[in-house]
Design a protein around this nucleic acid. Structure first.
Lengths: 162, 162
DNA sequence: ATATTATGGATATTAAATATCCCTATATCT
DNA sequence: AGATATAGGGATATTTAATATCCATAATAT
């Protein structure tokens, strides 16, 4: 069980968009080039973000994407779920119902205990992702990235932002 | 990203093995029949448990599996990892290194911030799974399962346990 | 001896992830 | 008005992982 690589792409792209000045847009082409990713396929990930309402897009030359909300109001879980889907990582096929000792058609009142425990773990994962915003990420990155690279990247992006 | 169905199978099988009297073994055939699963494929999941040292196996007629440890000393994470592998659910391809503004061959001191956050969420998931033992599950099941089904199942298993 | 079992290897089948291509509508610029 | 660059969506390969089956082998109980 491994998350799609599109999750990584989406997170990094959002981190870049979070640093974009108000009202500016950055294209798929620029984002793909900046991260060394296949433009066409990255486009699908960005479309997922758009459909989820996390980013706003605009057409034409100088078109592209910007965040739909301030970085402090956009958390990791939203981005992950936009790309990966909202369904839980553990699927319960209710195999306990196949137990030949159970009356046929017997209906359990509560979901399977095994599934409930697995879903609690899933929720712990989601809770952690929910607790980290793009603003938090930006703060970490600005602290860790060497100033020269940070500035060069900012300039590189601005030059291409419509 | 969805866990293999073998994870569900392994958990349910371990729950049954946890109720087995000391020294008895239950075969793949019985476990497959009890859960309505393909015997050959379930066998692979049980082999994973065996290789991880979570269960002990014995050959020949009346052979099969038993837990290698008391249910209170066997947690969900061990079972999940035995089947699903121990690798993290988020793979970092370090795409930040593709940033054209970075000096070629530049080596970061610490792993990517995005990956670290995703790994923290992964660890929260694992921590939750680590905190639940087969004994906990057994307690829940014995409380929730209707006594008649519970008893019939126990008898069904005992009749087939070598 | 015979039957039953776990184990491991080989292989087939199905589903999902990855990736590319092309067409359309829209916006910008000249 | 016309040329160009963009997102969006549909169709379709390609690759990889999950699911599943089959068979040969060694060990064990009766």
């Amino acid at each position: 069980m491994i998350l799609k690589s599109q999750v990584e792409w989406a997170l990094h792209c959002c981190a870049i968009l979070a640093g974009l000045p108000e009202g500016r847009y950055l294209s798929t082409k620029a984002l793909a080039e900046l991260h060394g990713l296949p433009k066409e396929y990255l486009s699908k990930a960005l479309q997922s973000l758009s459909q989820a309402g996390l980013v706003h897009s605009t057409l034409g030359p100088s078109g592209g994407y910007r965040l739909a909300r301030p970085p402090a109001e956009l958390n990791f879980l939203e981005i992950v779920e936009a790309v990966e889907g909202k369904s839980r990582t553990f699927v319960c096929d209710n195999i306990r119902a196949n137990n030949p000792c159970r009356p046929k058609g017997y209906c359990d009142s509560s979901p399977c205990a095994v599934a409930r425990i697995m879903w609690e773990a899933d929720e712990a994962w989601r809770q952690k992702l929910r607790s980290v915003t793009l603003a938090d990420l930006g703060e970490i990155l600005s602290r860790e990235t060497p100033p020269a690279i940070w500035k060069d990247t900012f300039d590189w992006v601005l030059k291409r932002a419509g």
